[in-house]
Design a protein around this nucleic acid. Structure first.
Lengths: 222, 222, 222, 222
DNA sequence: TATGAATGAGATTTCATTCAT
DNA sequence: AATGAATGAAATCTCATTCAT
């Protein structure tokens, strides 16, 4: 069972070693296998045995690279966190015009790619209950990062009430929630929409939410 | 083993047998303990031992009522599904006026109560991956039911394009996603808002999304 | 549980995997321990714990080789079945002279050896009630094989009635029953006779039954 | 688990109580259910639950009549032993003529009836490993009684060698073994013969074995 | 006399981790 | 750098027996 205090840390440093080409490849195979298996079974139900089989290697090898199952998961989370930070940083102020809507759509497309690969890790995050201090990351939810970034790019309301500041953050969270769920629904086939349709709908929804439904970028509305 | 009374199916009937008052109470205690433990630890990490301890009963008793952890979870899901269906059925057409907004808020309040109790089950759903054919339910996600009900109550757009039908469903899903996430964020303390504030924000957001931000119930909007 | 790698079938393949020398030895140790423990306690009363103790290994190791107690038993049965088939095939036509009686005695001696090792498995067979379709074996009783072989080597009666065919089979079963029980009684010490005396008695009885008590090999009969 | 030293003996005397009509009926129902369940599953695999269900009564009631599972089994064994003793006593000297063969057949028919009812108990006997001192019975095998009776009725060989005495006992055991196995094979359907055919074959075999195949009682041999 | 509910000791089974090569 | 085998702590599950009504 997932033991938060691993018995020994013998191999813990393993990940820190300098690796040759072969070693890097093996490590990569294990990480990819991890994504796969965590996606299929969740953190607790994922067995090291599954991961090792998917990576076509052995138990012994696994512990050469990661001190335990949790460490592999943490490595994956670190990857997502990095990419998420990049993504958050790449969001530019959203303008009301068609160009702004297009930029937004492009950004959503990047999110969608990221989500396709790492979505399961995001969703497993809560289940895993990894001690977060280890990673020095903030929220329980990696999406929080995106919400903050999004809030920062929303047009500042004219009224200066304290309440509005909250509203903006909250609204951003709502939008991010919507974005995440849509990607999930579409990926899992629960919504009959292809990727392009999803991106259009999302870009419109978010843009509308921010600037009102009457904005000129939407020629298809009669 | 040629076993006329297969082991695994034995306790399963237990759930079907007629129970006296005492038995019903015990079963109820186990279900409540299940909600609690699944909420705290997730499906896979939850141990039967945790559940029986929470229910102040014994292992043996657990298996008198449920053939295993999964069966208990399935029973809980069936409960949520029932309540969700009731909730979905109770949603009336949403009108554009302040009364419509109030009715919506009241309905959201009911959802919020339901979510406070069963939210963890909803969130554990994906992790547990119970075979759904057993329950005779279709959508992977119990929230889908709500989305369909909501879509049915959205005002019909005047344009009669086929596309709009989809848009309505998809928009409803987006709204449900938002509702669910908000409840989650507020309950888990990730968003600093109390229940009333949350309900106001949600009622406003949904009503606005449906009728546009200019509706008369919201005097604070310029 | 939607489980792509069903739990119960996992260790089953273990038995199918290629084993190195060490693994083969461990497997053998477990099988031998199984014979021992099943003999002492019968199928149901035998605990995996007894078996691993006898094999000087651990629970974990047991399940590396057999998915459960039943699988180990089935493997043993397969072994007996093989040896029984060999034994059945090795029986040559029984002649009326002293040489025929000697050949029969030698064959009975081989049976006796087999029985000393695997007798408990034969006797546990009924108790265990392993699903036979799994093994692709037909008769409920492994001794049936021997009876058929024996019937084939009995001298053909001159009378050609259909009934005689049955009589031969039935007579063969009777003889096999006698052979098995004698071995059991002698082995379990319920009959005060040593191995040689038993073999003599059995060889005489069967030979007499086939050719009549007057056959020349038995000078001590008046 | 089958505990040879029951924790308490509170209800042990229960069987000794004076029972009214209703009680006697319940006790009988439990015994009959026991025969049934022990036959189907063997001693260790038989669950009190199975017996109680078959007897259409409750756990509590079971322990009102028998102190434990073993006690029920012992009661059944006592029944068989009684009937077996009666049967053994009823065997008269076997004569060489047709009347002797008929008497033997009738006796075998009584055995067959007994075996149909209690055979499973006989076969479960070894598995159960009940402490036999409790019952004050002799051998591991209840059939031993029959063998002794049969040996007593075999015609005394003229030679007075000590060896013959043994031979007679041993031969009787062989015959009993044959009788038991035949009944088993026929009952279990492993031999395609009806009851009458079985009785004929057995009567002939035993009679032949005792008096030689040429005896005049067998008109159907050409 | 009868019963449904509860119990807990003991059995089975899993799987993260370590070891020897 | 890699691996198959082994381990054992911890989980699941069973069922004879007792209890309260």
């Amino acid at each position: 069972m997932a033991d938060p205090t691993p018995r020994t840390a013998r191999a813990a440093d393993a990940a820190g070693r300098e690796l040759r080409a072969r070693g890097r490849k093996t490590r990569r195979r294990l990480l990819d296998a991890g994504i796969d298996v965590f996606a299929r079974r969740g953190f607790h139900a994922a067995r090291v045995d599954d991961i090792v089989k998917a990576a076509k290697t052995s138990h012994g090898t696994f512990y050469l690279y990661f001190s335990n199952k949790e460490a592999l998961f943490a490595a994956l989370v670190a990857d997502v966190a990095d990419e998420m930070a990049d993504l958050a940083a790449s969001l530019e102020p959203i303008t009301a015009d068609a160009a702004g809507r297009e930029a937004l759509r492009a950004w959503l497309s990047r999110f969608s790619e990221l989500y396709e690969r790492y979505g399961p890790i995001l969703r497993t995050w809560t289940e895993a209950e990894i001690d977060q201090s280890e990673l020095g990351r903030m929220g329980t939810d990696l999406l929080g990062e995106l919400a903050v970034a999004l809030a920062a790019q929303l047009p500042t309301p004219k009224r200066a009430k304290a309440r509005d500041r909250i509203d903006n953050d909250v609204a951003a969270l709502a939008l991010v929630a919507m974005i995440e769920r849509f990607n999930y629904f579409v990926l899992s086939g629960q919504v009959g929409a292809d990727r392009d349709a999803m991106l259009d709908t999302l870009a419109d929804s978010v843009h509308d939410a921010v600037f009102g439904a009457a904005a000129e970028h939407r020629p298809r509305v009669s």
